[in-house]
Design a binder for these strands. Structure first.
Lengths: 243, 243
DNA sequence: GGCGGTAGAGTTGTCGACATTCCTACGACA
DNA sequence: TGTCGTAGGAATGTCGACAACTCTACCGCC
C-alpha cells in the first residue's frame, strides 16, 4: 500500500511469478508514518495541533526512537512542521497553503492523466467506474462525507493506474492533505451532484482519449475545489486548534 | 535553503520586515538529510551502495539517533531504499527508475513554468539569464560537468521562482536524482552546445509569454535527457556499486 | 567435491536515561 | 497595577547500551 514501504525490490528487472515475489517487510518508521498519516487525514489531529511524542509512542506501542523516525518522514512530506525544542505540529490550512496544496496536486494529476491517455485509457476509465458509482450512491444518500471520500479515492486511483512509483508517493501526501481539508473545512458540499458530474465527465473524456478535454476538466475541477476551500477558510469555518 | 528546514513560519499571513523575520533554526535531522542528500547527489555514494550508520554518524559528528531520523527523510523522498535488518541503499539507476524520475520531474517543471507564465514571466526570464551565461561559459570551456550543473541549477531556479513551497520541496529531490544520473551515467554530453541552445529557447519562450511553446520545449528537453540517460544505462557505462 | 550446519563478527533495531530547552505560574518590586 | 525575575514542571534533543538479525568463514559429513 505504501509507496515507500521499504520493499526489497531494488533490482527492478527481476521478473517473478505473482506468488513468488520478494517478501516485503516494511520498517517500523514506515508503519508509524502510515498510521499517523491516516490519523491526521482522518481528522484525529486538527490543523495546527501539536503531536506529543510520549503519548503517541505509548498509543502505538513503540518507543520514542522509531516514533520520531516515522514523524520525520511526515515532516519531510510537509504534513508536519517542526519547531526546534517545541515539537511537531500539523500543517496549518492557511489560504496560501491550500492554494499551494492544489497547485502541486494539479501538477501530479495532470501528468498522471496524460500518462494514462498515452496508454490504454479505456481500461483506465473502466477501473475508475466503481468509484464513480460509489460516489453517485453516496450523493443520492445525501452522504456528503462519503462523496468527498470517493472523490479523493477517484484521484488516488487515477494516479495509481499510471504505475509510477514517484507520482504515487507524492500523491499520497496530497491525498492526505485533501482529506485534512475535507475534515477541517467541512464536507458541506451542497453541490454533491455537480461533483459527481465533474468526475463522470473526466472519466468520459479519458475513455474517449480526448487529451485536451481531460486536461481542461481536471484543471477546472481543481480550481473549483480550491475556490470552495479557500472561501470556507475565509468565512472562518475552520476547525483547528487554538494551540 | 531547504524547503523542509523546519522553520517557525507556521502562521503564514504575518508580514515582517526583511531584517526582522522569524529566525529559523532547522532541526538536526533536517541538516543531516541535507548533507547526505548533497553527498549522494555529488556522487560520494554511488547508486546501489549501502550507507553505514556508525561510519556516517561519526563523520557527521552526531549519534545514530539523529542520523537515522535524517536518513528516514531521504527514504521518504525515494533517494534511499530501506531493507529491514540490512540497511539503507542509494536508489538504483535502472531504466525504469530513470524514466520515472523524469516523468515526475516533467510534471513539476511544466507546472512551474505555467505558474511563471501566469505571472511576470519577463522578470523570471531575467532571473534565469545568469545561469544561461554560466552554462554557455562552461560549454565554451569544454566543461561538460559544469554545463550539467548549470543545467540543473537552471531548472531549480525555474521552480524556485514560482514561490511554491511544495513544488520546491518535491523538486529538490528530483534535482538530486538528476545529479545522481549525471555522476553515475557520466556527463559525457558531446552536445553541450545544443544543450545550451535548448535552455536559451526555453527562457526565450518564457520571456515572450508563449505558454504552448514553453511547454513543448520543456517536454522535448526532458525526453531528450531521458533518452540519453536510458541509452547510457543500457550501454553499460553505469558507475554503480557491485555491492 | 559438494552440501549442510555452526560459530563468530558486524550491523541494524529498539529502548531507557540524561541533558537541555521551553512554557507556566508565582511572587517581588517599582 | 503592571513588569520583571525566578522556580517548577514537562516536553524535546541526544546519547550510549543491549537485543536481534544477517552475513561470512570455517568445519564436519555424506
Amino acid at each position: 500500500m505504501s509507496p515507500t514501504g521499504d520493499a526489497s525490490s531494488r533490482s527492478g528487472s527481476a521478473r517473478r511469478s505473482s506468488t513468488l515475489r520478494p517478501l516485503v517487510q516494511q520498517s517500523t518508521p514506515a508503519r508509524v508514518a502510515a498510521r499517523v498519516r491516516r490519523a491526521i487525514a482522518n481528522g484525529d489531529f486538527p490543523p495546527g495541533s501539536q503531536l506529543h511524542e510520549v503519548a503517541l509512542a505509548r498509543q502505538l506501542g513503540v518507543s520514542r526512537g522509531p516514533l520520531r523516525e516515522g514523524l520525520q518522514r511526515l515532516t519531510q512530506e510537509g504534513l508536519l512542521t517542526a519547531i526546534r525544542n517545541r515539537g511537531l505540529f500539523v500543517v496549518d490550512l492557511t489560504p496560501e497553503n491550500v492554494r499551494d496544496m492544489f497547485l502541486a496536486r494539479e501538477a501530479i494529476e495532470r501528468c498522471a492523466a496524460s500518462v494514462l491517455l498515452r496508454g490504454d485509457h479505456a481500461a483506465a476509465a473502466d477501473a475508475l467506474e466503481p468509484l464513480l458509482e460509489q460516489m453517485a450512491r453516496a450523493a443520492e444518500a445525501g452522504d456528503s462525507h462519503g462523496v468527498a471520500e470517493a472523490d479523493i479515492s477517484f484521484h488516488e486511483k487515477l494516479v495509481a493506474l499510471t504505475g509510477s512509483e514517484r507520482l504515487r508517493r507524492i500523491h499520497e501526501t496530497q491525498a492526505a492533505e485533501a482529506r485534512i481539508c475535507v475534515h477541517a473545512l467541512g464536507s458541506t458540499y451542497d453541490n454533491d451532484v455537480q461533483r459527481v458530474a465533474e468526475h463522470r465527465a473526466i472519466a468520459q473524456a479519458l475513455r474517449e482519449g480526448d487529451a485536451e478535454l481531460t486536461d481542461r476538466l481536471l484543471v477546472a475541477h481543481m480550481a473549483d475545489a480550491v475556490a470552495e476551500l479557500v472561501e470556507a477558510s475565509r468565512t472562518g469555518q475552520v476547525r483547528q486548534e487554538a494551540d
